[in-house]
Amino acid sequence: MSDREGHTGAPGDDDLSLPKATVSKMIAALLPNDIVCAKETRDLVIECCVEFIHLISSEANEICEQESKKTIAPEHIISALKRLGFDSFTSEVEDVLKDHKQQQKDREKKVSKFEQSGLTEEELLAEQEKLFAASRAKFQSTQQ
């Protein structure tokens, strides 16, 4: 049974989409300056992307269930890409995953530095003000 002519899927699939403005910007960035993309083409690209995401996530979910896991992990996505014949995508996905993990570590370091200081936010702000005042005084003394 189809929701619309030529479209099959689970109920509510019509609600799934990607931001049109963002997709339009990405398409424009990839096309030569003298080529324009019609709205119908952009909408078709969005439908294809949503279908691709659905395909990969369904396969990853199946892999997850086979492993008796309750959460889809990045490794499940990579395995799904391989199973479905998208091996050429895996190295880029692994690179993005590596970057993401590094960004998470960097964020955790920043939080832990604050926590390690043992000072409240107000105490840190007061310390910062003292440093600014000392810096201003030093700058003004060199200007005279």
Results as ranks from 00 to 15, higher is better:
E5Y: 07
E5G: 09
G6H: 10
T8N: 10
G9T: 09
A10C: 11
A10K: 12
P11G: 03
D14M: 12
L16W: 08
L16T: 02
L16E: 02
L18Y: 07
K20E: 05
T22I: 13
V23T: 02
M26Q: 04
I27L: 12
I27E: 03
L30F: 10
L30A: 13
P32E: 02
N33I: 09
D34N: 14
I35Q: 09
V36D: 13
V36R: 15
V36Q: 12
V36F: 08
E40N: 10
E40D: 13
L44D: 05
V45Q: 02
I46D: 00
E47I: 04
C48V: 04
C49D: 04
E51A: 12
E51S: 11
I53W: 00
H54T: 06
H54G: 06
L55Q: 12
L55I: 09
I56S: 00
S57C: 11
S58M: 07
E59T: 11
N61D: 14
E62L: 09
E62C: 08
K69M: 02
T71G: 07
E75S: 13
H76Q: 05
I77T: 07
I77K: 04
I78G: 01
S79Q: 13
A80F: 05
K82I: 08
R83K: 15
L84E: 06
G85D: 05
F86V: 01
F86I: 05
F89K: 02
F89Y: 15
T90I: 09
S91Y: 07
S91T: 15
V93G: 06
E94T: 13
D95T: 13
D95L: 11
V96H: 10
K98F: 08
K98T: 12
D106T: 12
R107L: 11
E108I: 10
E108M: 07
E108D: 11
V111Q: 08
V111S: 03
S112Y: 08
K113I: 03
E115R: 13
E115C: 04
E115N: 11
S117L: 07
S117M: 05
S117C: 07
T120K: 06
E123S: 03
L124A: 02
L124T: 01
A126W: 00
E129K: 10
L131V: 08
F132Q: 12
A134N: 14
R136K: 15
R136Q: 15
A137D: 15
K138Q: 07
F139I: 08
Q140C: 02
Q140T: 05
S141D: 10
T142Y: 05
T142F: 05
T142W: 01
